[in-house]
Design a protein around this nucleic acid. Sequence first.
DNA 1: GCGTGTGAATCTCTTCACAGCA
DNA 2: TGCTGTGAAGAGATTCACACGC
Lengths: 282, 282
Amino acid sequence: MSLPPETGTADAGESLVAPGAGPAADGERPARPVPEATVSRLAVYLRVLGELRDQGVETVSSEELAGASGVNSAKLRKDLSHLGSYGVRGVGYDVTSLQGRLSAELGLDHRQSVALVGVGNLGHALAGYAGFAGRGFPVSALFDVDPDLVGIEINGIVVRHVHEIPEACAEHGVTIGMVATPGPVAQSVCDLLVRGGVQSILNFAPVLLQVPGDVEVRKVDLSVELQVLAFHVARRHTAGESATGRGAEVAADPAGTPVGPGAAGASGDAHRESNGSVVSRR
Amino acid sequence: MSLPPETGTADAGESLVAPGAGPAADGERPARPVPEATVSRLAVYLRVLGELRDQGVETVSSEELAGASGVNSAKLRKDLSHLGSYGVRGVGYDVTSLQGRLSAELGLDHRQSVALVGVGNLGHALAGYAGFAGRGFPVSALFDVDPDLVGIEINGIVVRHVHEIPEACAEHGVTIGMVATPGPVAQSVCDLLVRGGVQSILNFAPVLLQVPGDVEVRKVDLSVELQVLAFHVARRHTAGESATGRGAEVAADPAGTPVGPGAAGASGDAHRESNGSVVSRR
DNA sequence: GCGTGTGAATCTCTTCACAGCA
DNA sequence: TGCTGTGAAGAGATTCACACGC
């Protein structure tokens, strides 16, 4: 059904807007929807912009940024257009200010507090994953049921018992919860997180979590990823039975310019990039 | 210490391919495309079917299977229709035979051999993830550059040096490679995998891998997942500023039907499911 | 009657192509 | 001149709704 595409959005919220970087000069508050598919790419652009800035680059064209992000330039421009006009015709985008704009849009200017439940195999790795803290997602609470794990300290955080989830989350103002428990207990853990006021959950358990309508869940299922890859391997066998890729020939890109970003780049053999994203919401 | 333990779902290595089995046999060789979006859902259906079979269920309707998988029945039927007719009107689908059909379609009847590069934080967790072996993806080779890691044994597999990747992969007939190294070395590792004949790569490093056109790459970027969730948290703040969910009331969905499984009257309180996956293709 | 399978309608996302501004 | 921003066309995917077989 296509009920209200969130008509209202009624609110004059001006608040956001990146402070530091881009002096929110021109007020762009289109109140538009921002396509779901676009959101997941914004995060990618943001990462690339960070790398560019570290390299001292001050301006990028849509062509360059798109190439380094694995999308084509038209898509990138369309994506950015949903946030307003931040580029300069004939020149490109200012790396720093665009970076600020994207951070604001993704809500990274508000401190996000993350809680991780399940400090077993994968959970332990996630707890120690530097990429999170470095990107504005400090894990501020850890939980588990295993008596052998409760009480130990990981990266300076003490693992608490899952029973403490509700109060601990409310206390720390946790906004995002990660579930890395065995499937059978994932739902109960999820319920505790919700009771603690968590609004978004990243689920690594192979189960479908049931949550209230105002809670967002994203699922990461590694087995599914592998199976999709297996499908492509099988398809290749079923279809063209060419010499199983050893020499690895390069296929012509059906729709895009290689556009190697300045960096290291395509020295040597031809390569291809491509990147897409598929998300299903609700 | 473990991830979502895979429920039996015994790899039923036999009953695969129930019908005709013979390629082309059962008039079903539409040579159709099978939409990309459908493929990733087939893996989900397969998991659910495994659970159902473990529960002794012999037949399911599209409504039931869809509900348990987090999609609506029309989508499920459309997805399955791409594989041919495997249901019985007025009855539903036979769990076991559909399971076999999906396994075959996903190429799980061919033994897949997986190689993992990078046995650090995340890599170590992946190496010990029981879910892989249980689902037909035995990790058969591990690699790293760290002298302290090369030589150690994880789950019975000895970690070898990355230099050995090409020959080791060719030797084991590795079809899928997983890259769990730091970003800076991911590309070089990827090149080695390709040289070893690997056709599909699951990339956990935060970089865009350049590969020949006949190699498939899927990317799993946890930071991107968190940022997308952060976006939704921020959006909620920007838009409606309702009492921040404590009692976790159910909010009306801003754009759609609850996709409630079957019966309108959801048992207990209203719940919602959501599912997402992020991948990059080619 | 029930539930699958499917054409048609809809919606969303992508790509094209070009007007317009620095 | 070069590159952004965007209307319009195109491609895909989702949902609807109903005919058909058990």
